[in-house]
């Protein structure tokens, strides 16, 4: 029996359940809270990207919208997107074309449901939490494929196929890096994994796994230096080339939601989610979680400011020759240590 079992058995209810009023009220409250978070967090990260990139590049970034350092820039962008004409080119498969942005965005929304922001601050606590997040996170590529295929555009097709190939290559190291953490903690539940790190963060015991997870999630998000699926200097915007207005805004929102989501998962797996640093226990858990998500997002943005993009074949080689064997070795080492320590 896992030493964590008593902890898990004593895991409290979500704070959202305390509202009372039965299943449906509960459901509505949870959906509203998650939706608000999903719509706000990407805007914050998007604004952060604007500003961080700008300052790294010797410029100011948005300064006008909202009067104070352009804080409302992304809101203004959103309003602009709404006003744009919604162009559906004649040759596209209109139904698939329209559905694609939703298929890209919805999995990320569903993913936020399980992220723990405190011991009791989460919407759902599945027993198979990490399995659920990784599985649902990879649904987005279907949306990208749909967008690329239905666009009837050569650039879009190339971009979509690149995205699909990339996802297949990087899903494996991503899962394997998580498996090592799961083995160490002895639970699949995200809250359980976070609780298991109350003494030390897993980045200390799983440094290689953390690096693999970082690289693989950058590829999964198609962020620099793995952003070939939408390499703007080669294939315009990849699968999103034909999209305009609100549909395009959905893809953008999904991109930033993805950054928040995968930073969140990484924070749970390796940085102890809401667990504080020593002597700083007086700072509330949700602030720790948000700070960790922001810090990881900052690293993602930093990568974008620094690196050019790899070539598609180099990216595949990097995954299959380096990351996958390394991740397997990591899993093996974790297993050996786990048995030996026990």
């Amino acid at each position: 029996m896992s030493p964590l079992a008593p902890v898990l058995a004593a895991a409290p209810e979500s704070f959202l359940s305390r509202v009372g009023g039965g299943f449906f009220v509960d459901l509505v409250v949870k959906v509203v809270v998650v939706m608000v978070f999903v719509l706000v967090a990407p805007l914050v990260i998007g604004y952060m990207e604007h500003k961080v990139l700008a300052h790294m590049q010797h410029r100011l970034g948005p300064m006008e919208a909202g009067r104070f350092h352009g804080w409302a820039q992304l809101v203004a962008d959103g309003i602009k997107f709404v006003q744009k004409e919604d162009i559906v080119p004649a040759a596209v498969d209109a139904r698939v074309f329209t559905l694609a942005p939703a298929v890209v965005l919805v999995p990320y929304i569903a993913l936020f449901v399980v992220l723990p922001f405190g011991r009791t601050i989460w919407a759902e606590n599945f027993d198979v939490g990490i399995f659920y997040t990784l599985a649902i996170g990879s649904v987005t590529v279907i949306g990208t494929l749909m967008a690329g295929w239905s666009s009837a555009n050569k650039f879009a097709l190339i971009g979509a196929l690149r995205a699909a190939a990339q996802l297949i290559a990087y899903e494996l190291p991503l899962v394997l890096a998580s498996v090592a953490v799961v083995m160490q903690s002895g639970t699949l539940s995200l809250v359980g994994i976070a609780e298991a790190q109350h003494r030390y963060w897993y980045v200390l015991t799983q440094p290689i796994g953390a690096l693999i997870f970082l690289a693989a999630s950058l590829a999964e998000l198609t962020r620099s230096p793995f952003d070939m699926p939408m390499a703007d200097s080669e294939i315009i915007a990849g699968a999103y080339t034909e999209y305009t207005g609100l549909k395009f805004a959905f893809f953008l929102l999904a991109e930033y939601a993805g950054v928040v989501a995968l930073s969140g998962i990484a924070a749970v797996l390796f940085l102890g989610a809401y667990q504080p640093l020593p002597f700083l226990g007086f700072v509330p858990g949700p602030i720790w979680m948000l700070a960790k998500v922001a810090a990881l997002s900052f690293i993602v943005i930093w990568f974008r400011a620094t690196y050019p993009r790899l070539r598609e074949d180099q990216l595949q080689r990097f995954s299959w020759i380096l990351l996958v064997p390394l991740a397997l070795a990591d899993v093996l080492a974790t297993a050996v240590v786990k048995v030996a320590v026990r």
Binding site: R59, S224, P225, S233, R304, A305, T306, Y307
Partner: peptide
């Protein structure tokens, strides 16, 4: 063009 957006600003 290779995807590194910072050097151009420098």
């Amino acid at each position: 063009e290779l995807g590194a957006m910072t050097p151009v600003f420098y």
